[in-house]
Design a protein around this nucleic acid. Structure first.
Length: 733
DNA sequence: CGGATTTAACTTTTT
DNA sequence: GTTAAATCCG
């Protein structure tokens, strides 16, 4: 193996100490931009190269796949190709262990992983069976409660001991059934990937022992984001060797709502006696100004370890704070500043990140960017693998690998339509349950079941044969080939081709994109299997896919931005009730988490930060006046410059400004706005009386001002597109 | 039974 | 503005 010489040069003294303290528990408190990943990668390299530790004795866990890949690449740069280090996310690493140990808990090694959507479907099914109306409790809320319980490792009985609350009662009933169904379907949810290994380790000491021996050195990245379950798991595994190194920053703990327990990092020293603590406080990323501002904010939090980042970087420009009129002007201002920066400093677009608290805010920003013609990428929102058409194909694949997966079965048994309606399906289910036969196997015996039409029977036979055929095929041909023929054979592709709509075309493109992903996977993986691909897919997120090579402005939530850096960062929507979010304001811990989120946002920037807040914002369908975020007051005022585009005092002014913008061609016609303020607001569904055609109903409204058009369906069945300005009709109230 | 059309609800952050 | 569920009709 040909590899570069390894040395610890290029590390500062504290980093070097953290890297070489290989034995015993180690806590590295690594502030933002202080070389956290550097320490982790050097440490792994050091273990292998200097101490001669076999790579397979090292387990390194991260939170995102992107972080894992980055570490892998950097280790490779340090010591060349290394095989055998277990380096992955929490979820993927333990999914791997679960597949190994599947026989121990009577699961198929091809078990499927249910995402939130699958979980909700299952919960909904259970609720229907238990006669709990879905309208009363959202399956989503139930799912959240179950997830919380799992993450905190609290048994349900214990969690909801004081009953009487109808919601908790519902959870008490649903939870055990839910777990039972997961088992029947040979499925795990996300949280199971962490909690089930704990159960196995407790139940089978020999299995635990095996992994304790195997993983002599354990490293955990982003330790501040671990929850109770993850903490327990790590504690179990490191008990023998005691060589546990965790790296984190309590100031960057932003996943409390997901069960992350900031106490894990704050109490590490007491939980692991003889811990050696190293503090990385030199920041290599940001200017002094940015650091000062960020420190002023985060130091207001009570529950934190005291520390202060310092830097040898230049002072840098002051932070700009812009108060704008509304979200549209916010977008214009962002565009404006980007143009200025591009012009002044010849910056490429990929230098910029626009961050926001909620995904919903991306729309207005996107609109502004689109108008300006600058290229941008939105990370987040609807995920690729959450798209309906993609999930449909995945459901077929899941079913082929694991026919017990009834959630996937129900999803695609009648998609594309095969004449199998609700009634038929229900009859099969009842029959299967009565005869104690698995749902999928029952399909083969539809002849014996009452109440199924002839059409449904042929459909069922086709479907069953299709799945069986592909199950056996999956052992002979590659995942890529299989998927390719599957989308033809199942009729999924045909179904969308027949749609002939723009929508259908996009769906086909997405399916092709999925196909490409399978292809890539097949080529890159040593032993490609369908279930391997499915696992990979269920554990990726959008940031993982985001490719920083393209020259585009990045739009993402503050949460997604963690771990990344950009020369110029915009943080938008700095308004009370948005950032901090309204529901976080009351509880101190929640507010502190929001503040940490702000801190994370600020420290993403290398050179320049621009903060924006609007005085009016239209969000979730109503617009309202807004107050500046309290976080703006918390900044160190010496590091900031305040600007305002404040020129508008009334709705009338706002209208005038918009008219001007439209005339100048700065702003496109916003039909939504015209509908809001027009005296005669035209909406789909309203009835009109036309001089010539008589009575009719508006189907939709589009365009604005003199170009405003409506489609009306008249009583005589004729549909007409009419230009409002010229058409002679009246609204019937 | 299935397709089309209409209505309603929903938006915090995500492995 | 989007998506899922409900409803209606052939």
């Amino acid at each position: 193996m040909d590899s570069p010489a390894f040395s610890l040069q290029g590390l500062n003294s504290e980093q070097r100490k953290a890297v070489t303290a290989t034995e015993g528990p180690v806590l590295v408190l690594a502030g933002a931009g202080s070389g956290k990943t550097r320490v982790l990668t050097y440490r792994i390299a050091y273990l292998i190269r200097e101490l001669g530790i076999p790579p397979f004795e090292i387990l390194a866990v991260t939170f995102t796949k992107k972080a894992a890949i980055e570490m892998q690449e950097r280790i490779q740069k340090l010591v060349g190709q290394v095989h055998g280090v277990w380096l992955g996310t929490f979820h993927s690493s333990f999914a791997k262990i679960l597949r190994h140990e599947a026989p121990a808990f009577q699961y198929s090694p091809n078990f499927v992983i249910y995402d939130t959507d699958d979980q909700c479907r299952l919960i909904k099914m259970i609720m229907e069976e238990l006669d709990i109306p879905v309208s009363r409790f959202h399956p989503k809320a139930i799912q959240g409660a179950i997830s919380q319980a799992k993450n905190r490792l609290i048994a349900v009985e214990q969690y909801f001991n004081q009953s009487g609350n109808p919601f908790e009662d519902a959870v008490i009933h649903i939870y055990p059934e839910y777990q039972k169904r997961l088992r029947e379907n040979h499925a795990f949810d996300f949280d199971d990937l962490i909690t089930v290994p704990i159960k196995i380790f407790k139940q089978y000491p020999d299995i635990l022992c095996k992994y304790q021996k195997r993983f002599q050195y354990i490293l955990v990245d982003e330790y501040q984001d671990t929850n109770k379950a993850q903490y327990e798991l790590i504690r179990f595994l490191s008990k023998k060797s005691r060589n546990l190194c965790v790296v984190g920053d309590d100031d960057q703990s932003i996943y409390g709502w997901r069960g992350a327990n900031i106490g894990n990092i704050l109490n590490f020293e007491s939980d692991f006696p003889e811990t050696r603590v190293f503090r990385l406080e030199q920041n290599y990323r940001s200017t002094k100004n940015i650091l000062a501002a960020a420190h002023a904010v985060v130091s207001r939090n009570q529950g934190r370890k005291s520390k202060k980042l310092w830097s040898e970087n230049p002072q840098g420009e002051k932070i700009e704070i812009w108060e704008v009129d509304d979200e549209r002007e916010e977008a214009f201002k962002v565009v404006d500043k980007i143009q200025e920066e591009v012009f002044k400093h010849k910056r490429p677009f990929c230098d910029f990140a626009i961050l926001y608290r909620t995904n919903a805010q991306s729309r207005a920003l996107e609109e502004g960017l689109r108008r300006s013609g600058m290229s941008y990428i939105i990370v987040g929102g609807v995920r690729f693998y959450d798209r309906k058409e993609v999930k449909d194909v995945l459901a077929y694949m899941k079913l082929i690998v694991n026919p017990r997966d009834t959630i996937s079965l129900k999803r695609v048994i009648n998609f594309p339509t095969r004449g199998i309606g609700d009634a038929s399906l229900r009859n099969i289910e009842i029959w299967a349950r009565k005869n104690n036969i698995r749902l999928f196997e029952a399909l083969a015996r539809s002849n014996e079941i009452q109440g199924i039409s002839g059409r449904a029977k042929t459909g069922i036979k086709h479907f069953y044969d299709l799945i069986v055929k592909y199950t056996s095929l999956s052992e002979k041909i590659s995942p890529a080939e299989l998927t390719h023929t599957l989308i033809e054979d199942s009729g999924v592709l045909r179904n969308y081709k027949e749609e002939m709509s723009l929508d259908g075309q996009m769906r086909i493109e997405n399916i092709n994109e999925l196909l490409k992903a399978v292809q890539d996977y097949t080529e890159e993986t040593e032993n490609p299997t369908i279930s391997g691909f499915l696992e990979e897919v269920s554990l990726v997120n959008d940031v993982d896919q985001w490719n920083d090579k393209s020259n585009a402005i990045t739009l993402m939530t503050l949460h997604s931005a963690k771990g990344l850096e950009f020369p110029v960062v915009f943080i938008t929507g700095l308004e009370e009730n948005l950032f901090p979010l309204s529901r976080s304001i009351e509880k101190t811990e929640d507010l502190e988490e929001e503040r940490r989120l702000f801190y994370v946002g600020l420290t993403r920037a290398k050179e320049k930060v621009i903060l924006l807040g609007a005085q009016n914002r239209r969000l979730y369908n109503n617009h309202e006046a807004r107050l500046p975020s309290r976080f703006l007051d918390e900044l160190d005022q010496n590091t900031c410059n305040f600007f305002s585009t404040h020129s508008i005092r009334s709705t009338g002014d706002l209208l005038k400004r918009d008219q001007q913008y439209i005339e100048d061609g700065i702003m496109p016609d916003y039909e939504s706005f015209s509908q809001e303020v027009g005296s005669e607001r035209l909406l789909a569904g309203q009835w009109v009386m036309h001089d010539m055609f008589g009575k009719g109903q508006i189907l939709n409204v589009h365009g604005h001002g003199s170009k405003e058009m409506v489609t009306v369906k008249f009583k005589n069945g004729v549909q007409k597109k009419l230009i409002v300005k010229y058409a002679k009709f009246k609204l019937i109230v």
